[in-house]
Amino acid sequence: MRCAAALRLIRGALAAAALLGAPSAWAQAAAPPPGAATAGAGSAGAATAGAGSARALRPEAAPRAPGPARPAPPGPERPAAAPERGAAPPKIAWDPRWPRFRTSEYVATGLLAATAFGTLAIPPSEGRWTAVNGFDGSAREALRIRSDRQRETARDASDLLLTVMTNHLAVDALLVAWWGHGRGSVAWEIAMIDIEALTLNAALNGVVAGLTSRERPYRAVCTGPEEEQDRDCRGSKRYRSFFSGHSSTAFTAAGLTCSHHAHLPLYGGGAPDALACVAALGTAAAVATLRVVSDQHFATDALTGAAVGTLTGLAVPWLLHYRGGAAAGADAGARRGDAVSIRFVPAPLGGYLVGRF
């Protein structure tokens, strides 16, 4: 009896020990190998504990100080940005609001050219205008060069400067607009406007000079037989003092230069185009002054020629073509706030040249 009770007690102890050791064995058997995917709540808890252990073994990384973001390296989806460059110079273009040279203008230009040549046939009148007013007399005494040779040099210099100014118009049309900007149609419009204004000035000057027949200031040296006189004393040239053709032509060219550069960025817009206008006006003033100091004209001849030429050079392009269009670089200037603009404003007794620099 006692042996049987002892055996039953031993079997119960072994069964209890087996029951207490089973969970550890099952856990060891159910633990997944490293890297194996697990499922279930128990496995998730084990994985979480393992992650916590791994974080405990690996020290936390120190937080990085804030700084400028680094651009992503260039790749096939995002090419590297090109270096910034200055804005491209504006291209010239004929504004659709500007009328192009009309058939009527071609006809009028031809008639004006014929008139200018026809005025050369107006016979001079020796006694029509010989009086000299006090202003012209005083200005002649103050400005006239005394040396004959120096007066001839001043006269030749006025011829040279006038040639430069008229050739500059051709350079702007042919070399700058046509060859430089590749705008043949714009070059044609500029050239035809130039010819139109110059022929109008020539016709006006020829008619007025032929009809008034004012004797030139150097008349005192025109003595003796005509064949022995200076070339300026011979023919009808001696009686074509009013108004100065050199002055009017020079200021017509200057007005045309200012008109074109104010509406077309021939030199890129801004200061270069404004400088072209200022230089043209200065050269025209030099031409007019040289006509007085060389004793070719009275002061009123040169001043009247300057007024007529300026009005012609500014009014013809503006009235017939540029009126109503945008000035050169108007849009870009409005964005920058530093636009350079030159425009002509008509007035009852002439006009005003208004500019912003």
Rank of each mutant, 00 (worst) to 15 (best):
S294I: 08
A284K: 00
T304F: 06
A286Y: 01
A299P: 02
G305Y: 01
T289R: 10
L275A: 13
A279W: 08
A280K: 04
D295H: 13
A307L: 12
A286D: 07
L290I: 08
A315N: 14
T312G: 01
R291A: 00
T312D: 02
G313N: 04
L281D: 02
T310I: 01
A315C: 15
A286S: 14
T283G: 11
V278K: 14
P272M: 04
T289S: 12
G305W: 05
D295K: 13
A280M: 07
A279R: 10
T289Y: 13
D273W: 06
T310L: 15
T310K: 00
T289V: 12
A302M: 08
L281H: 11
A307D: 10
A285S: 12
L275Q: 15
R291F: 00
A285C: 00
V316A: 14
V278W: 14
D301C: 07
L303R: 07
T283L: 14
C277G: 14
A315F: 14
L281Q: 08
F298Q: 01
A307G: 09
G313W: 01
A276G: 11
V287Y: 04
Q296I: 09
T289A: 14
V292R: 09
W318S: 12
A306F: 00
A284L: 02
A299I: 10
T300E: 15
T283P: 00
G313K: 01
W318N: 15
G313E: 01
G313M: 03
C277F: 06
G313Q: 05
T312E: 05
A279Y: 03
D295F: 08
A285G: 07
A306R: 03
V292M: 07
G282P: 04
A286Q: 09
T300V: 13
A274T: 12
A286G: 07
T283N: 10
A299L: 15
A280H: 03
A307N: 07
L275Y: 11
A279C: 10
C277L: 05
L275K: 10
V287H: 04
V287K: 03
D295C: 13
V287Q: 03
L311Y: 14
A279S: 11
A274S: 12
V308H: 00
A315K: 13
V292C: 05
P272V: 04
A271S: 11
W318C: 13
D273P: 02
V293D: 13
V308T: 07
A315H: 12
R291S: 00
L275C: 02
L319Y: 12
A280P: 03
D273V: 07
T304M: 11
A271T: 15
D301I: 11
D301Q: 11
L311D: 12
Q296Y: 10
A302E: 01
A274N: 07
A271W: 13
A284V: 01
V292N: 06
V278G: 11
A280E: 02
T304Y: 04
F298W: 11
T283A: 14
Q296D: 14
P272W: 01
L303G: 06
A315G: 10
A276M: 11
G282L: 15
W318K: 13
L281K: 02
